[in-house]
Structure formats: structure tokens, C-alpha cells
């Protein structure tokens, strides 16, 4: 059997990806996580001295704290299997990537294990975030310098 022929057969037998179902699950779970985040935002604005501008930081930290609990008890994994991008895209998913790596590599010690592996999964997000922020800001600076746009 030729590789091409085999891959056709494999495709035939393998169940297709349920695109619609996956998308809906991601929508609902992702939406619910963001709604919880929104509630946290209100909590900080009403009960503490935060404004709409400054409330982002405590909200994100609180959500990552929730993520730590869910990750530590193995529940974020279950959520991820159900919701996929719905739980990976919110900042809690970023927290899960960092925290799960830290927990996993505890057995290799605090320095080489936790320290060396904590950004194993989340490092790519930081890399691309920083690199693209650099280029976008650079382009904007150039455009401002030559007078195309203003700050």
C-alpha cells in the first residue's frame, strides 16, 4: 500500500473533528470564565479603591489564584479536556500552563525543576507577546517620526 493510499484510508476510518461542538464548548466556557472575571472586576471597584483603569491587575491576579486551585486539584485539566481553547485562551489558561509545569517538575528540585521548567509551556506566549509588542511599538514610533500618525 502506498503512503498516499494509506493516508486516505486512515482519514476515512478516523472520526472527524467535531468543529461546531468544539467551537460552542469553547464559546460557553470561555464566556463564563470572562463573566467571572467581570464579577471580580466589580468586586474590586465596589469594595476596594480601584477604578476602571487600574482594576485590571488585581483581577488578573485573582483569576490566576483561582487557576492555581483548579490546577492543583487536577480540575483545570478536566476543564481543558472539555473546553479546549475555552479554558486555554483566558488568562487562567496561562496560569495553568505556568502552575502545572511548576508542580510537575517539583521532583527535579527547586532550582533545576521548578526554576528551569516553570515557563516551559507559557514561555512561548511571553516570547511572542514581547516580540510583537516591540515591533508594533517600533513601527508606531517610526510612523510618528515621519509624521504619518500621531501618538
Amino acid at each position: 500500500m502506498e503512503p498516499k493510499e494509506y493516508q486516505d484510508l486512515e482519514k476515512q476510518v478516523t472520526p472527524p473533528i467535531p468543529y461546531l461542538k468544539n467551537a460552542l464548548k469553547a464559546f460557553f466556557v470561555g464566556g463564563i470564565i470572562c463573566t467571572i472575571g467581570h464579577a471580580v472586576t466589580y468586586f474590586y471597584i465596589i469594595f476596594f479603591d480601584f477604578t476602571e483603569k487600574t482594576v485590571g491587575n488585581p483581577t488578573v491576579s485573582t483569576m490566576i489564584f483561582f487557576s492555581m486551585l483548579l490546577t492543583g486539584f487536577g480540575l483545570y485539566k478536566k476543564l481543558g479536556q472539555y473546553a479546549a481553547a475555552g479554558s486555554a485562551v483566558p488568562v487562567t489558561g496561562f496560569g495553568n500552563a505556568v502552575i502545572s509545569a511548576a508542580i510537575e517538575h517539583r521532583t527535579e528540585g527547586v532550582v533545576l525543576g521548578i526554576g528551569g521548567n516553570i515557563f516551559k509551556l507559557a514561555g512561548t506566549v511571553i516570547l511572542f507577546g514581547v516580540a510583537s509588542a516591540f515591533f508594533v511599538a517600533l513601527i508606531k514610533l517610526i510612523l510618528v517620526s515621519i509624521g504619518v500618525v500621531q501618538w
Binding site: T14, P15, I17, T71, G72, G74, Y76, K77, L79, G80, Q81, Y82, A83, A84, S87, A88, G93, N96, A97, I99, S100, A101, I103, E104, H105, K120, L121
Partner: peptide, 17 residues
């Protein structure tokens, strides 16, 4: 799992296959 895929508590989805 930790060697070939992800940390055990990472929430990456696994396909039906």
C-alpha cells in the same frame, strides 16, 4: 505523559484519537 506530552495537570485538550 510528562516526558512525551505535557505536565499531568496541564489543561491541553486531547483529541478522540
Amino acid at each position: 505523559e510528562r516526558q512525551f506530552r505535557y505536565p499531568n495537570y496541564y489543561g491541553g485538550p486531547k483529541p478522540a484519537t
